[in-house]
Amino acid sequence: MTSDQGSREIDLTVTINGMEVRRRVPARLLLSDFIRDEVGLTGTHVGCEHGYCGACTVIADGDAIRSCSTLAVQVDGSDIRTVEDLASDGELTPMQQAFHENHAMQCGFCTAGFLMTLESVDPDDYREPEQVVELLSGNLCRCTGYQNIVKAVCSVWGVEGRRRDSQ
């Protein structure tokens, strides 16, 4: 079905984790569903579908974005990275390793979103623990109380840990 002004289905070309993907997709297809159902990369999770929880965070042209609040057609021509692209040959990145060692994950459902947010930024912009906390506030975690996530990030980025008692 197509009106004079637009179309219900759109041809789309994106690069996902270095692989070019061409598809004809419904205009209403969410990027999260495109990544998960069309491309089959299920490491990106859907937690709220209204742009709040951050579980669906992926990197588009270098920027962390919410894939549930983005239509697939909006990233036509973009370069997308998902959690599956982080480790090479199964070798964990330092951040992934730090999440493991610091027990910064429990059910693991939010983990990909946190990792992609962290991957997208320049650690030099986050030298204070408060800045790390503010950055992490765009991703929800229900299991960890965030404490070990902050710890893991600070350990990798060489940030002095979050201060107790707001000293």
């Binding site: 299920t42 490491g43 999770h45 859907v46 480790a87 964990l92 493991h100 994950m105 693991g108």
Partner: peptide, 13 residues
């Protein structure tokens, strides 16, 4: 930990 870190853990969805 390893499977969710790599995006390989399988949830129902």
């Amino acid at each position: 930990d390893r499977s969710p870190l790599l995006g390989r853990r399988r949830y129902v969805a």
